[in-house]
Simulated scan of single mutants.
Amino acid sequence: MTDDTPISHIVHLVRSFEDDATAPREIQFGRRLRPSALAVLWVLLVAGTLSTSLLVVFLWTSDSPGWWFNLIFTLLPAFFMAGCGMALTESRRLSRREAQLAERWHATRNHARPSAGRVIDRTVSLMEHGSVSSFTLTLTLTVDIEETSRIRARWYRSNPENADATLLQTQIPAIGSKARVWSVGAPNDNEPLIVEALDPSTVIP
């Protein structure tokens, strides 16, 4: 199933809801490659592409089992290099978009207002050892006791504020649990939005 969660909608796990709460100071996106790391990877990709091109030329100009063999070992590295290039391009695009959203939140957070929300669905991505890599919540928003809309938001383990936290599945907000949604104006996919959801492991029965 395609994940249609807007990049601008982020989940913050909290221990409690404060009565006199103010909007979160920062929006907690996941960690991405820094520009310097991306530059190094691009250099390696270009070097690898040039080296592969020389090998392909040698493959087609020397004896081989046949044209089909040459074609296979031309297409495989070509697809791999193209995939790496697309991944690096997308990572850079998302980094820029997140930086814009972070600046937007910093500039407008004083105008953000909370809305009541309730979790109606969730999806979870796990790491190899079973801890949570990320999860997505689907919520309904309620204004004046009337359901107004549904939104989706994501929590990132790799966010620097989470310090690569080891999150157990029991700490993911349960379906039916309450949440607080911060936004400036009506929620939409293009503006930053923060969902504060309770960590169930910290709730005292």
Score class of each variant (00 low, 15 high):
V14A: 07
P35N: 04
L71Y: 11
P205W: 12
I72C: 00
V46P: 03
W67M: 11
S16G: 03
Q171N: 13
T108Y: 01
R104L: 12
F79G: 11
E128S: 13
T2Y: 13
R118H: 08
W105K: 09
W67G: 05
L33A: 13
L33N: 13
S16P: 00
G130A: 11
L50H: 05
S53F: 15
V40I: 04
V119Y: 09
E146H: 15
H106N: 12
S8G: 12
W68K: 09
R104G: 02
P6Q: 15
E90N: 11
L139D: 05
A87C: 06
L88W: 08
L55R: 14
A112Q: 06
D144S: 15
G85T: 03
D121V: 07
M127N: 15
W105E: 00
W42D: 00
S149Q: 15
R97C: 01
E191V: 02
P24S: 02
T140R: 10
I72Q: 01
L141N: 08
V43R: 15
P65W: 06
T5D: 05
W67T: 08
V43K: 14
L59P: 02
R152N: 09
S91A: 10
W68L: 11
M86P: 02
L33Y: 14
E128P: 03
P200D: 00
R15M: 03
H111A: 09
D63E: 13
V14C: 12
D121K: 13
T142G: 05
V57I: 15
S115D: 09
A21R: 10
L13H: 07
K178T: 10
M86Q: 12
P77E: 06
G117S: 05
G185W: 11
T170Q: 15
T108A: 13
L33G: 08
A39V: 01
A165V: 12
E128Y: 09
P24C: 02
I72A: 07
R104F: 05
T142R: 10
D189K: 13
I27V: 14
I7R: 14
L141H: 07
G130P: 12
R152E: 07
H111S: 09
L71H: 03
S36A: 12
D63H: 04
L75T: 09
L44M: 09
L55F: 08
F58G: 10
P35W: 01
W155N: 07
I151N: 03
V57N: 06
L38W: 02
G85E: 04
P35F: 01
G130S: 05
F17K: 01
L168A: 14
L198S: 05
A99M: 08
M86R: 15
R154N: 03
L168Q: 14
V43P: 01
L137D: 03
S62K: 14
E90T: 13
A87W: 12
L101F: 04
T5N: 13
S201E: 01
T74D: 03
R152M: 09
W42Q: 11
G66M: 04
I175N: 10
A87F: 15
P114L: 12
R96H: 07
L141K: 00
M86N: 11
R157F: 04
G66T: 11
E191L: 11
V46A: 12
E191W: 08
